[in-house]
Design a protein around this nucleic acid. Structure first.
Lengths: 211, 211, 211, 211
DNA sequence: TCGTAACCGAGACGGTACGTCTGGTCTTTTT
DNA sequence: AAAAAGACCAGACGTACCGTCTCGGTTACGA
């Protein structure tokens, strides 16, 4: 599963059969919300490095155990709080042209990352994932792969339209495009401008049509 | 300067004039070496996340202040220990063809990153740089820019040979290529294979010639 | 009442009248037994300090509330578990001589306290009573006073036999004798030997006849 | 040693020889005082059961580690704070008569225990010692034995005067007398009155002269 | 025979305190 | 003036229990 979220009740996971009885007091949805809100708040104020479980618990008016019961680590909690906002800001454009689709997608990403507090948070989540294997797995499964699946649809359409060759390696194409963008976000050696977006897409599409 | 290393003597930096008298006991070169060795050792064993100043000091047989006197943070110490090995493993190929130059450079990078302990350390240094502005500055100045300057020489040669256009934006080209590589290193969603290196260089060069 | 045991049903205590209707599901005698057994087990293994309600509940296969419904505190539960064994090990000797009666009583107490697990448990119950007023009251009512009433019978008999004066302050006599014994149990500065028992009784009886 | 106090510096204990160099920063005497004062304060306010290391640290304006560096447990810290006041309140009377010496000593003990906050603290220290072997050892060594040595001097004098026999077992005599007093303190079944003191001493001295 | 009251096990809840770890600083003596 | 040593304050960590609460369900009585 690898989503960092700890499932309710210590029972063995059931594959099928009746809907499972659910014993004991159910998890409080209110606590859930309070924790997520508090986490998002602290995250925006101080970043992931300055976010302690202790403070999130205090702000949410919740015991620390109530957090530890749901998330395995600071990182996975932050990921959930982050995705609540970031998820859905990444559209799946359909302009009829690969070039314009990719450009729209990249622009949306850049806009999220430079225009909101998402940029540094996203960066620090990748950073945290380097030391928290559980978060790394969640990150790959819930962010990287999910976004990538969306983006592959654009490439599928381009193949269907005959714009690019059928055997194209989608992963490499997307690594080129988003790798460049993540590179600038993480290293900070150059700004994430709109001109950059256009240049990247131009190069990538040019390479695709030639290759 | 931004190299994270703290210069000897707390005196005001002298611009010119006599070679400066240097009062008091000079810094121990032996302590220097012991610290670097200990840091490299811990770094290899436990990674940056598991490296505490406390332990490095203990292993080096050195007081904590002796470390704090030389480096501003855990990250800058780790950077120094890292560069002692990584520096120089990145060659400046000159094959007479842009494609082969880029491929050789990327292959060297991938070899360092997958074949030695440098990969995870490099990743964790980038991670640490997200929370330590001093390290971020050092990282950009001593790693990113330095390597980039090397790589730009390859592109200069290609322009001179007439392989690519004169106005080409080197930064974007290098971001595409190395961005893709860093992307796979940091996200871990796909492996850093030789095939990947070839594909990336093919795409980038194709795009360059077309654009 | 002060016995730490909580009576069934939250109803107002009735003074007299019909035998009370008793509505709702009656308390499970099986749970009762399971709790007492589990408590005795943990008590023997880890002592009172290492006995948590949580673990007793888990071992007894019982919800924590089922325990809290019956006992006001860890101490009162432990007292019940303790008395189940200790009660009845303290005989009421009747040898025809005060000296021998007291000696038999003291010997029985010392045997319980040194020969079984009762010693440390008894000590830790007195310890716990210092911080739990409810337990302190129960302890006095159910252990100290009860035992004392028994011992006073021996003194009554001695008075009847003309062995000691009629006005003798029983409390002081018993405090001397058992105080010395408790002292050694709690401070551990000297062992509770049979010789000690004999000496104590000798001194006390000598003092009684003289005074 | 068994005094619960942790000696400074991690060095091996030296038996003899030069006064030892003492490396590193010495323990702060100011922190020492602040901790003791804070502990005494909390102890008086809430008793030992309500005294947490956390609060003592906070009140003393000191890090928790600074306390843990000096004392092995809550109990040994409390003992130190307690003895700072209690020690010295127990005189060594010399009236020329065993009866009057013992009475004066017992009265002084009762006065300390009933007239000041020492009573409940003393009781809770004995209680705590039942679960903390380190405290138990300190308690025996620093309180019980020390006081007992004082009291034995009174008995020595009585032997010298020919008041009591030479072979008298001092431990039993003192257990009788102070055992009775501790008994009332810990069980609370009867008050520690002056009449009680007189009766106890009368019985004990009567027993001694007869035996 | 049904409703209602009190019980049952499970487990989540808000808290407190634990003892440890590390960070970065400060204070000694020694070189 | 720098070194090694080690104590200093601060504060987060993750855990253990506390005593309470909220579920779904059971058991007995009395209407």
């Amino acid at each position: 599963m690898a989503d960092g979220r700890i499932p309710a009740s210590g029972h063995i996971v059931r594959e099928a059969g009746p809907p499972a009885p659910r014993r004991g007091r159910p998890r409080s949805a209110q606590a859930d919300r309070a924790i997520m809100d508090a986490a998002a708040e602290v995250l925006a104020e101080r970043g992931l490095a300055g976010m302690s479980i202790e403070e999130v618990a205090a702000r949410a008016g919740v015991g620390k155990t109530t957090i530890y019961r749901r998330w395995t680590s600071r990182g996975t909690l932050a990921l959930d709080a982050f995705l609540a906002e970031f998820q859905g800001q990444q559209p799946l454009p359909d302009t009829g042209s690969l070039h314009d689709d990719l450009l729209a997608a990249l622009r949306a990403w850049i806009r999220s990352v430079t225009g909101t507090s998402a940029g540094p948070i996203l960066a620090s989540l990748i950073a945290e994932a380097q030391r928290d294997p559980g978060l790394a797995a969640s990150w790959r499964g819930r962010v990287v792969e999910r976004l990538r699946d969306q983006h592959k649809i654009m490439l599928d359409r381009a193949v269907a339209r005959g714009e690019i060759a059928a055997g194209t390696d989608y992963d490499v194409v997307l690594d080129l495009m988003f790798g460049a963008a993540y590179h600038r976000l993480l290293q900070g050696h150059q700004p994430l401008t709109d001109k950059f977006a256009r240049q990247v897409v131009d190069y990538v599409v040019a390479g695709l049509k030639r290759a």
